[in-house]
Design a protein around this nucleic acid. Sequence first.
DNA 1: AAGGCGGGGGC
DNA 2: GCCCCAGCCTT
Length: 347
Amino acid sequence: MLNSKIINWYEFNKRDLPWRNTSDPYKIWISEIMLQQTQVVTVVDYYLRFINSFPSISALASANEQEVLNHWQGLGYYSRARNLHSAAKSIKDNYKGVFPDSFDEIIKLKGIGVYTASAISAFAFHLPYAAVDGNVYRVLSRLFGVSESTSSPKGKKEFQALADELMADAPPHIYNQAIIEFGALQCTAKNPDCEVCPLQAQCFAYINKQQDVLPAKKKKVKVIDRFFYYLYIYNDTRFLLQQRGERDIWRNLFEFPLIEADNKIELVDLINSEAWETLLKDIKVEVTERKITKTHKLSHQNLHIEFVHVRIENYEFEKFKSLISVDKEVAMNYPMPKPIEMYLAGK
DNA sequence: AAGGCGGGGGC
DNA sequence: GCCCCAGCCTT
């Protein structure tokens, strides 16, 4: 049986990961959300801190969103944190604080799709759902020689059927961990270790030297350039922050007052811009430094960011009605995008 | 069906 | 530089 070969491989090669030492659906849920589009090595520390601060559904449900986002700071895809928080409140209100134990109820929760519902159903409740993530997709594609992409409903259906078939009567919580781990460590995207692979003899891709062709490549996303000029408006003890809006990147996170331009602009032009005038109208300022950072790359945007130091007098702070005057000592209570965090950390 | 949404690992 | 990562949601 193919699945027993994978499970056997798993028993010898699995990593010791913190969310594998529990059957608490809450902890498994947290780990699965964090692991969406995020590698294990990145997640571990966030997971441990998060569980430590929010050890239960009720702890998470009674936190405020800013606290939750603070624990998510730097992990990316912040809607995951907002959905997690929302779902925790929903479980408290609709399920008496007990994590639902059926796939159909689990998938109703915000931020949980087919993959995550399957994974939680299998890991926490040992229900027979085969989870298909990027790893499983890659393994199945190579093993059975399927060049269909998972981006279409047809492709999704095909890979789900293969996964269901491969799992057969294997224990769901073990089989799913096994094939995912197999994809992460053995059947890797680049340079899969085919020479010591237990599935070598049955693998379509190995037999036909298609490892570099399968699975089908994703379409490249087009990346746009944006030009951010952050104003670090400060004095000895305070500086200004604003909260980002609902539409754009970094939703609800806190940042320095921002002037965004269509192109790279010089400091003198920035200071003479309408945006500068609007922001600093009637304020006595001293531009003390301009610090250029390297481009901050998101998956779909290249952010060209520069920081401009603007020193102001103490009494001027109260003129910024719509901005937040933050004591430097408590700045870390505000969840911020990575570039702002790094800037404040002096890196 | 396609696009938006972070940040980092690893080559 | 590029591809990918235990995807989901909105349009």
